[in-house]
């Protein structure tokens, strides 16, 4: 992945500096609160990584992946199964490799075909993996539950997720300026053209889906200590997949950091709804989907861009009008 331009532009440097500062500020949160706000911030950090990793693949390709819960669960299980025998960092790596491998298999089966096949395949994937894991556990081990005892507190998990966020952002930036990133932008524009300029489109899509899935697996691995007791239904919760899609689309997929704009408000909203109106969560997600499709088809970021453009155009029109007026007076 040789970079398109070896240099870092001034704008990129500014964004990197700002991002690092924001991460540093976010990292101090546990110094002030280790209860409700840390818990909420942990959820936000988790969905930031999940949604950014999701956008890495789905942004340029427009394929809607509902496989997040499957990758997440595989990451969680990698840790839960090995925590008594292997060191934690190694298990995180296993989670990455296992999720990426599953992503590769799914990709090979579906990414040569149109987006519909992919959505359908990923729609049931978490449920499928859950069934297989449950079946394997009941038949070959003693019972389905697993305990994950570690010394990690929520603070540690939160810091791990922040570090992971930084890694995902840097990876996304590197991918965007690599041949692979350029290939995916072309594929997202017109797959026929992509093939005819010499891009192995299936390979490019599978590769990126593996990177994206691998990161989602890492998130699941990092979260395992928080669960303490891991069971298939909690690890492979299909709602995770839908929440990732809705938050990422709500923010917008055009830019690497755009999902943030969806994750922060939606996580807070969803947290409140689950706490006070637990029977209304489906409705909220449903309405959010409708809102994205009908009101914000390019997410919050698209809305902001439109407003800016409108303002700019308005200003130009104003200037032109004044110019015309001036001319009229002169004549």
């Amino acid at each position: 992945m040789t970079p398109l331009l070896a240099t870092v532009t001034r704008k990129e440097a500014r964004i990197a500096l700002f991002g690092a500062a924001a991460l540093a500020v976010a990292a101090t949160l546990p110094l002030f609160d280790t209860g409700f706000y840390l818990s909420l911030a942990l959820n936000v950090a988790m969905y930031v990584v999940l949604c950014t990793a999701w956008t890495l693949f789905s942004g340029p390709t427009h394929y809607i992946s509902l496989a997040s819960a499957a990758f997440f669960g595989i990451g969680t299980y990698s840790v839960a199964l090995g925590i008594d025998t292997l060191p934690f960092p190694l298990l995180v790596a296993v989670g990455f490799v296992a999720s990426a491998a599953l992503a590769g298999l799914v990709g090979i089966a579906t990414l040569r075909l149109s987006g519909v096949y992919f959505v359908i395949f990923t729609l049931g994937l978490a449920e499928l993996v859950r069934q297989v894991v449950t079946w394997a556990q009941t038949n070959f081990t003693h019972g389905v539950g697993l305990y994950v005892f570690t010394d990690f507190t929520e603070t540690h998990i939160y810091w791990m997720l922040l570090a992971l966020a930084a890694i995902v952002y840097v990876t996304g930036w590197l991918v965007n300026r690599s041949r692979l990133g350029f290939a995916l932008r072309i594929i997202g524009n017109d797959e026929t053209v992509a093939r005819h300029v010499g891009i192995d489109t299936a390979r490019a899509k599978v590769l990126l889906f593996m990177i994206s899935g691998g990161f989602i697996g890492i998130v699941g691995a990092c979260l395992a200590p928080r669960f303490a007791y891991v069971e298939p239904p909690s690890a492979f919760n299909p709602m995770i997949s839908f929440q990732v899609v809705i938050m990422a689309l709500l923010g917008g997929t055009g830019r690497l950091w755009a999902p943030l704009l969806g994750v922060i408000p939606f996580t807070i909203l969803f947290d409140q709804v689950s706490a006070y109106f637990p029977n209304h969560t489906s409705l909220v997600i449903g309405i959010a989907f409708m809102a994205v499709v009908y009101l914000l088809p390019r997410g919050v970021i698209g809305f902001v861009d439109d407003m800016r453009r409108l303002k700019k155009r308005f200003r130009i029109v104003l200037v032109e009008d004044e110019g015309a007026l001036g001319k009229e007076r002169a004549s």
Partner: peptide, 25 residues
């Protein structure tokens, strides 16, 4: 068939980067 969300230069670079010549940067 034009790549609508890319600039003219990027449209042409698509051919240079991935085709027979395979240049970069």
């Amino acid at each position: 068939r034009i790549l609508p969300s890319m600039t003219a230069l990027e449209n042409v670079m698509a051919g240079a980067v991935f085709g027979h010549a395979r240049t970069w940067g």
